[in-house]
Design a binder for these strands. Structure first.
Lengths: 229, 229
DNA sequence: GTCTATATTTTGATAGAC
DNA sequence: GTCTATCAAAATATAGAC
């Protein structure tokens, strides 16, 4: 037992270093995966970006796929957690829906790699996702489904397909966010693709679109209330 | 000159065969690229899918990148051409906007690989696109920009950013279309992701969203007219 | 036009010293 | 925990016969 007691200090030091390099790898991987996709991302490049040796990468993560899952898992787990919190709050269906959109938008901005990675994962058919990821996604869509159902029951929303509404929210939001680098580069050739739309404007537009579609033809003023400018 | 005269018949035969195998390669490539992306797509697998020898693939196309450009170019050129035609037609801004959305949706369904490939290309930042592709894309967005401007001048649409509106149309449409295989596979685990929403319903929803956002707060009945059901 | 065999390069991954 | 050196497996592309 005395042998065990001697370790703490040194362990703490080592652990902190490990956490640092591990975090650097994670961050670099997120950028690489977002910019090039799973197959396009190269392990060597991730290590280089992270400023660590390639062997270090394998010290922290079993392989490329595990690293990818770590990044993706973090995205969905975080979003799912926020959604769980959202489910506890009150308010009208319109307010809840706006809050739902805010969470998606916030997560998409908080993690710059999120939008592009999500776009790719959708195109990939969820190839790289695991059971836990699907669970988180299910939780997210379920949150939206509950809001829609509530609004529908209250006679404020049309009947709708949750997954379709979800794509109607994530699509515009993430497509716009994911194309930020591209738009920046294209500005000279395409004055139509501005790199600098304020996030608030984008979010407002998405809210307006969604509420607009769900309340089209109704006399309520909810459409104009939720997403102005 | 007599040597030249003897060729035609044989050439025709050969040409037909060539066209067939070339088309098969093109088709197989479109599927592979859509399902796995540029880096994920493997030349061997494309050849196998096409039922031709790998060497044949290189006989028809200089390399993998050229093949990719051929598929992508076809998508954008076709869509751009339809947009050019649309620019000639008349009607109210609302009608034109609906027609614009119809073109995007039609192209997305006509070429099953279009949605997924477009999602990927956006995430890639247009890495694999050439000058001509950007020209076509510019033409497409410009068509939308003109419609929006007209509606705005007529006092029927809010001021808007064309590229953002474009993402608001392509996003929901293509995300939903691109996830068809995924949804089919997930049905058992996620009853929220139905594989079978009728395209007409999806298109109507996107029209309703877009018109709804552009006319939010207005007294006009255009929102309910353009995208019902 | 079509196929076999092969050259070349890239890349994911590990062994083993420090 | 960190790095060097290296292996083994893919994967792109081509040469050359038919």
């Amino acid at each position: 037992m005395p042998r065990v007691a001697a370790v703490p200090v040194r362990t703490k030091k080592k652990t902190r270093d490990a956490d640092v390099s591990r975090a650097r790898v994670f961050e670099a991987a997120a950028e690489e995966f977002a910019a090039r996709g799973f197959d396009g991302a190269k392990v060597d490049r991730i290590a280089e970006r992270a400023g660590v040796n390639k062997a270090m990468l394998y010290y922290h993560y079993t392989d490329k796929a595990a690293l990818y899952r770590a990044v993706v898992g973090d995205m969905f787990a975080s979003t799912a957690a926020e959604m769980a919190a959202l489910r506890e709050t009150g308010g009208s269906p319109e307010v809840k829906l706006a809050a739902f959109i805010d969470v998606i938008a916030r997560e998409g901005q908080l993690r710059p790699h999120f939008p592009a990675m999500w776009l790719r994962e959708l195109a990939d058919g969820g190839q790289h996702l695991g059971e836990r990821n699907f669970g988180d996604i299910f939780g997210i869509v379920s949150t939206l489904a509950a809001i829609l159902k509530e609004g529908e029951a209250a006679g404020r929303f049309h009947a709708s397909t949750p997954f379709m509404v979800q794509m109607g929210i994530v699509g515009p939001l993430f497509m716009f966010l994911a194309t930020a680098p591209m738009r920046k580069r294209l500005m000279t050739k395409m004055p139509i693709a501005p790199p600098d739309v304020p996030p608030a404007t984008l979010v407002a537009y998405v809210k307006s679109m969604t509420i607009g579609a769900l309340t089209a033809g109704r006399t309520s003023s909810s459409a104009s209330k939720a997403g102005k400018r």
